[in-house]
Amino acid sequence: MRTVMIVDDSVSMRQMVGYTLRQGGFEVIEAEHGQDALNKLAGATVDLILTDLNMPVMDGITLIQNVRKQPAMKSKPILMLTTEGLASKKEQGKAAGATGWIVKPFDPEKLLQTLAKVLP
């Protein structure tokens, strides 16, 4: 079973994304901000990261930059899931190493389709 890490400071968003992914047959690890995600990544094997942009402690862009430094996570897909849709922000995400950008609110079926596309 593939494992997806959801990083979002909103409990309800984590619940909604978690519900969708579990229904799609994924194992889910939740983190409430970038630093929490980095801590949890240390002891886990993750196939994909789905992260929010604006979060306390550590934001999504910084998280991606840190994750990409880890050899095991260099080629793993990382998707941004955020209410932010500005092209300049997207460029920042792409430069940091994001694989894709999904603007909230997400469509559960489309989210699963996107995951299937980016997962090897």
Binding site: M13, M16, T83, K104, P105, F106, P108
Partner: peptide, 20 residues
Amino acid sequence: LARDIGSAVRGLQFQDRTNQ
């Protein structure tokens, strides 16, 4: 039911925007 819940999940995300 899964489709309906999917629609509800999409609808409920208003809360994330509202909260922000």
